[in-house]
Design a protein around this nucleic acid. Structure first.
Lengths: 220, 220
DNA sequence: ATGTTTGTTTAGTGATTGCCAAACAAACCT
DNA sequence: AGGTTTGTTTGGCAATCACTAAACAAACAT
């Protein structure tokens, strides 16, 4: 089918890229529509025509963000043979992404809107949902490790370990935001992986569950 | 000296407390002066008279926050005999504070203003400075442990371990914000302390220093 | 050529932002 | 009582917010 009507004067992909840069630097509420219009090179009315509302634009920005900047850590999680290597690669890919010279030194998913006005509650929960799916992705990889016989531990320890590495990933963004270097993050990751060797490498995870203490004496 | 002039009609401490609640829930930029005036029960002009600007008020709120809600983790760090116990107590006190039923489930210092408008850059750096001093406090405790003969490791490993636990503390706030329970945080803390046993408990910390990292898989 | 469709800009909407001058109020002072 | 000092409120500042109606522009259709 041929294109009807007046053709676009801007490239939507380029415009989303420019919007990404602003939202990334200033967060959701810190970015105004006039800021966006200027950066995207079009009138604000064109933004509404092309992308809907500010919240809609942000959702499309985040979708693109997930398939570009957010992709390496996700791929690292699935594309390594052993679970430990996968987690290590995921952490290192995260550190790479949040210390890039050409972008803000943190993950937009984590810091673009952790708090804010009451009226933007839905946007914050939209981001929180994605973050919770990040945890779920880590947990799935650990579950796969258990299924592979690669990882041996009680079920609730798998949950804890997955949440633990999600916590580390999120903490790394604050560190990088506050000026930590790539090398400093690498040292943090080394410490975080030392926990792996203790919890998953040893026979027993030394009281990792909060409730009943179940001692698992199986060896790997 | 007797009090000159018209007396205050509100208690500054109570007013700061009410301002704290709002800034805590909505962050710095998410809280408006009219919101604050309503919550504090006074006109916005009185806020300026008593506290200066919005940024000044926020700084006073954070100062009070540090000596109240922020106090238990800090005290835990200094009031325990062994370094490991101190770190564990600090982490648990943090988890306690960010899952209180009477307050938002995160640390205001970490999530009140990680990103935002260009004009509020100074407020964000004010918070970042305090966060960096948190890392410094952890590092001081570890240094003391080394001095006490309580902890034995290379100097750069002490740096890494301090930054690592700062990372965990900050990650915990995102986790609690996104709905993690106190028990789930406890399980995360157990994992984080397993790293201690591996890095500080064992003889050598398995390459914790900032060495070569070759993971960079950045995409366009 | 005229109409339809789609995208653009102009020019605004009402609401809200942080902030402040000026008037008013309540205490103490001499 | 009159003056001084301090704190309060009223009223409104200019700027910005997210958003949109309406006019204009550029393509295709018939």
């Amino acid at each position: 089918m041929a294109t009807r009507g007046r053709p676009r004067t801007f490239d939507p992909e380029t415009a989303l890229q420019q919007a990404t840069q602003l939202f990334w630097e200033r967060g959701y509420e810190g970015t105004s529509l006039s800021d966006l219009a200027t950066a995207m090179g079009i009138a604000s009315a064109s933004i509404y025509h092309a992308f809907g509302s500010k919240a809609d634009l942000f959702r499309q920005v985040m979708e693109r963000y997930g398939t570009t900047y957010g992709s390496p850590p996700k791929r690292a999680l699935t594309e390594h043979a052993t679970t430990r290597e996968a987690v290590q690669a995921m952490l290192r890919a995260t550190a790479d992404q949040i210390t890039r010279a050409d972008a803000p030194h943190y993950c937009m998913l984590i810091l673009a809107a952790p708090t804010g006005t009451v009226e933007n509650h839905a946007v914050r929960e939209f981001l929180a949902d994605i973050r919770r799916s990040q945890y779920a992705a880590i947990k799935e990889r650990l579950d796969r490790g258990v299924a592979d016989g690669d990882l041996s531990m009680p079920l609730d320890t798998v949950d804890a370990l997955a949440r633990y590495y999600a916590t580390v990933v999120q903490g790394l963004s604050i560190q990088a935001r506050d000026g930590a270097t790539r090398d400093e993050l690498e040292a943090v990751i080394d410490c975080a992986l030392a926990a792996w060797d203790q919890v998953a490498g040893a026979a027993s995870p030394a009281g990792v569950s909060a409730g009943a203490h179940t001692t698992d004496t199986r060896s790997a």
